[in-house]
């Protein structure tokens, strides 16, 4: 059962991220909550590809055949991290611009402004 705790932790982070977005009154804060939501996916991937007692999949100083953890999930996590960084940058830019045009970072007030 203990080995399943990382998966529960991932769900915990997903729900906190969603909670943050649902209750946010500031777009910059909201975007960071989205980033927290995303970190949960790193955790699931990490937990899935981990093998107890194995080494990192880097064979520079290791004989071939040494047991290593799954390299695929790590490749997926790298892609995931880049996606996170860029989506966050894009959303922050939109938020800043919305503040510039609408004078507020509060999603509720922007909504009202739009009419």
């Amino acid at each position: 059962m203990l080995g399943h705790l990382p998966y529960a932790l991932a769900a915990w982070l997903i729900l906190w991220g969603l909670y943050g977005i649902v209750t946010s009154r500031n777009l910059i804060h909201l975007v960071i909550c989205l980033a927290v939501l995303q970190t949960s996916t790193y955790l699931i991937l990490l937990a899935i590809g981990y093998k107890a007692g194995a080494v990192a999949p880097i064979y520079a100083d290791m004989p071939a055949g040494t047991v290593a953890v799954d390299p695929v999930v790590q490749a997926l996590m790298l892609t995931d991290i880049v996606v996170e960084a860029t989506v966050v940058a894009l959303l922050l830019a939109i938020a800043v611009q919305a503040h510039e045009r609408g004078g507020s970072l509060d999603p509720a007030r922007l909504c009202a402004l739009k009419g």
Partner: peptide, 23 residues
């Protein structure tokens, strides 16, 4: 999530063919 994740292998017991072949 709970219903699904409890069927997962516990962390640390990865044995997928994909990663092993690539390694």
């Amino acid at each position: 999530w709970f219903a699904g994740a409890r069927k997962l292998d516990p962390m640390g017991s990865y044995h997928g063919a994909y990663g092993e072949i690539l390694n």
